[in-house]
Simulated scan of single mutants.
Amino acid sequence: MVRNLAILAGVVVVAGLGGTFYFSQGSGDEDQFAQCREGAVAGAIGGPFELVSETGETVTDKDVITEPSLLYFGYTFCPDVCPLDNTRNVEAVEILEERGQSVKPVFISIDPERDTPEVMAEFTDYMHPRMVGLTGSAAQVKAASQAYRTYYKKQESDDPEYYLVDHSTFSYLVLPEHGFVDYFKRDVTPEQMADRIGCFVEKM
């Protein structure tokens, strides 16, 4: 049920964007990553953010995106979609590590009420030793989500501590000095993801 809602949320987001993601290449410059993309990506996704790291420090996108990074927006109480997607992302990162390419997995919470830095640290430590967990105030999380044009909505619940959050399920590849360059849907395998990310890394 939750998985279907999350997938539907992703579909809604894509539909709202006219069926495509957009990325800004700069005025007239040739796209050095054109060979790495599978589809058209144009317009504005990504940008500055200020969040709280799993160590409790306030950080910006400049502090986090210090190497090629794979961003995913979700929450630690998510029963199935988020663990599955983050596991897939980690598997892609490990494949890239075997090929000598370093990519940082980043997990951004859209449930700051429950996802404290301590909770995020426990989740990311379990997923991958280099995964970075980010949370923050409701306003900080909303601003980061809006920058990446993601969707999330807390479901109504009689219990304030046990509720689900509908959310989009895309993963975003972000490069230092370049920003957002590509995204990955849920049906992309770890091997396919690693191949596409590796292409971008090689052309940096």
Score class of each variant (00 low, 15 high):
N89R: 03
V12D: 14
G179D: 13
V119K: 14
E54Y: 05
V103I: 12
H167N: 08
V41G: 06
C78D: 14
K62Y: 00
C78I: 09
D125L: 00
G133H: 09
V103D: 09
R186K: 11
D182P: 05
F21L: 15
G133L: 07
S157Q: 04
E50A: 13
V52H: 03
M204S: 12
Q192C: 05
M1C: 05
F23N: 07
G179C: 03
E191K: 15
N4W: 10
F184C: 03
G46K: 02
A6T: 09
E191W: 03
A139T: 14
V2H: 02
E38S: 06
P79V: 15
G26W: 07
S53R: 04
D182I: 06
A144E: 05
V11S: 11
T55K: 15
Q140C: 07
V59K: 09
P48E: 13
C199V: 13
M1I: 10
G26F: 11
S24H: 08
L8D: 09
Q25C: 04
R114D: 00
G74S: 08
A40N: 01
L51V: 12
E177P: 02
C36L: 01
L8A: 09
Y126S: 09
G100T: 12
T169K: 00
E98Y: 05
L96D: 00
A143D: 12
V141Y: 00
P129F: 10
L5M: 14
I197Q: 11
I45Y: 15
E191C: 01
V2R: 00
T124W: 06
A9I: 00
V41M: 04
E97I: 06
V12F: 10
L164E: 13
N86W: 02
G39S: 12
T135R: 00
G136N: 00
D125E: 14
T124D: 03
C199L: 08
F77N: 12
E57W: 02
S24N: 10
T150Y: 05
F107Y: 14
V41Q: 01
A138F: 06
D61M: 11
A40E: 04
F23A: 11
F23T: 09
A144K: 05
V2N: 03
P190M: 10
G133E: 05
D29W: 10
L8K: 06
P190G: 07
E202L: 12
E38R: 10
A92P: 01
E67I: 02
E94L: 02
L5D: 08
R99C: 00
Q146Y: 02
P105W: 10
G39D: 13
V188A: 15
T58M: 05
L8I: 01
Y75R: 01
V201E: 13
L134A: 05
L173H: 06
R130P: 00
V93N: 00
D159F: 04
L17H: 12
E57D: 15
F184V: 03
G43S: 15
V11C: 01
G136C: 03
F170R: 07
A40G: 08
Q101S: 03
Y148A: 07
A15D: 08
V12N: 14
D195T: 12
L70Y: 12
K185Y: 08
Y162V: 07
G198K: 01
M131A: 14
R186D: 07
L8T: 04
L5Q: 12
E98F: 04
G136R: 01
T20N: 06
